[in-house]
């Protein structure tokens, strides 16, 4: 063991196209299989680049063991961007070998937060929201086309996930600073679209109307007709606004809000106030 530790401080192995393919494949198909509360994607990060680590440091060397221990520590980021961090990591490790251990640990910890924030807001919230809205809108009308459209978009995203590793590897640490402006512009535009689409959806997808009709002597007042003259779809807008307000309250979770809405809807329907729009 001790004899080897002297000899292999520098990495002689150069990553090949096959290595990148293998990392990408492992990231796309096996990432997060080992997700757990203690280290989250920790073991996943190690698993994805393990064959490359073995080639770079050599089997049964103390360097490999210490690097593997470091790569097995807590890690969690957007699974759309993890290979960007791994590309930067590999570029550094290839250059400096085991000496880079602390640098790499620092870069992993430093980058996982920002990439999680951007990745989650773009790919865990916005894409599902916009594509989900279009697909669901078609689906409730009995049309499956939207679901296929969504899948097509997701395959385009997968393609980006595939090419970003090599890009990050070549650019190294500089990538983060050069990407920042573009990513925030993209996030800004995407959130704008998200807000717009929610407005559009509130107007079409909340099929509720006031069914209460007041009888004043011989005159019947249909509330929904009155409301439609002020502004069509006003009730759905008020409901979305009301729930938005409720979600801002303390101790309110989305699951709780869903159940409150079910109970209130059943009550209002039983009282003959609110009903399903035709």
């Amino acid at each position: 063991m001790e004899t080897k530790s002297k000899s292999t401080n520098k990495i002689t192995y150069k990553l090949t196209a096959k290595d990148f393919r293998q990392i990408n494949f492992r990231s796309l198909v096996f990432n997060q299989w080992g997700w757990n509360y203690e280290r989250m994607q920790g073991s996943g990060y190690l698993y994805i680049m393990m064959p490359q680590l073995r080639k770079m440091y050599g089997d049964h060397t103390p360097e490999l063991k210490s690097i593997m221990k470091m790569q097995n520590q807590f890690f969690n980021t957007s699974n759309f961007f993890n290979t960007i961090i791994q590309g930067i990591d590999l570029a550094i490790e290839e250059k400096k070998g085991v000496k880079s251990l602390e640098t790499v640990a620092g870069i992993k910890a430093g980058l996982m937060g920002p990439f999680a924030a951007i990745g989650d807001s773009l790919f865990a919230a916005l894409v599902p929201a916009i594509m989900g809205a279009i697909a669901a809108n078609m689906a409730v009308n009995g049309n499956a086309l939207g679901a296929f459209l969504w899948m097509a978009v997701d395959f385009v995203i997968m393609w980006f996930r595939w090419i970003q590793l090599k890009f990050a590897y070549k650019q190294g640490v500089n990538l983060v600073t050069s990407m920042q402006g573009q990513l925030s512009a993209l996030t800004d535009a995407a959130t704008l679209l998200g807000v717009y689409v929610v407005g559009a959806l509130a107007a079409t997808m909340v099929n509720t109307q006031v069914i209460y009709v007041a009888h004043l002597g011989k005159m019947a007042v249909n509330f929904q007709e009155q409301i439609d003259m002020i502004m069509p779809k006003l009730i759905p807008a008020l409901i979305v606004g009301g729930i938005y307000w409720m979600l801002g309250k303390k101790h309110m979770t989305s699951t709780r809000a869903i159940f409150i809405v079910i109970i209130v809807a059943v009550a209002l329907s039983a009282l003959g106030i609110l009903g399903k729009a035709v």
Binding site: V206, A265, K276
Partner: peptide
Amino acid sequence: TAGALLPA
């Protein structure tokens, strides 16, 4: 009714 309202 609740089912129709849930998207909100």
